[in-house]
Amino acid sequence: MNKTDTIVCRCEEVTLAQIEEAIRMGATSLKAIKKITRAGMGDCQGKTCHRQIMALLAQKLNISLDQLEEDLPRFPFMPVPLEILKTRQREVETAERKGEKP
């Protein structure tokens, strides 16, 4: 990756230049880059770009990859309509009424 207009995070359309700027602003972790640039905040939640960003961070900070903290995946892991959770809630309530384990 050497062209600064290269898109690193496709969901949020974050460029290499923006990520490099975040590192200049003091980002020292994947989470920080996410917070500053929104890279990894889109529909795929960083499934593809996190690896590239980690590699870039390690290179720029001159440390090894395993010294960087991973960002744990967060619920619900893939985009789901809110109403699906509501359906699940009804299942649990019904099960509880019937005295079953949800």
Binding site: Q45, R74, P81, L82
Partner: peptide, 11 residues
């Protein structure tokens, strides 16, 4: 109306 939209993350 918002129930049909997707949630992608939680905190």
């Amino acid at each position: 109306e918002l129930l049909k939209y997707k949630i992608i993350r939680s905190w």
